[in-house]
């Protein structure tokens, strides 16, 4: 017990797990963004390839990274996140 927050509250286990999912997602996001941008973008401009008119590094890193993150976020929320009640009073009634 610390200032009224019980460590045993099972809702906090769920909350903690979801916070870690947030950290993992941001790491994936960063690695993907960095990898494509500086992996493909550091070549000379003459050897760039283009997708939908955009340089490939930019398309994968920024456009692709955006779409990827939206998909991952939707999957994480739908499959891994759990609904818990927030108010203590309603805890027993659900």
């Amino acid at each position: 017990m610390k200032n009224g927050i019980s460590d045993k509250d099972p809702r906090f286990k769920i909350a903690q797990r979801e916070a870690w999912i947030g950290v993992i997602l941001v790491i994936i996001n960063f690695v993907w963004w960095f990898g494509f941008a500086y992996g493909m973008g550091s070549e000379s401009v003459e050897s760039y390839t283009y997708i939908f008119g955009l340089p490939a590094w930019f398309f994968f890193s920024c456009v692709g990274g955006f779409v990827l993150m939206v998909i991952l976020v939707i999957l994480a929320v739908k499959l891994l996140f759990k609904e818990v009640p927030f108010d203590d009073e309603t805890e027993g009634t659900r």
């Binding site: 509250d9 809702r11 906090f12 909350a15 979801e18 916070a19 818990v84």
Partner: peptide, 9 residues
Amino acid sequence: MILGKKFAI
């Protein structure tokens, strides 16, 4: 996600 449910509760 980080503040999340813990902060809300």
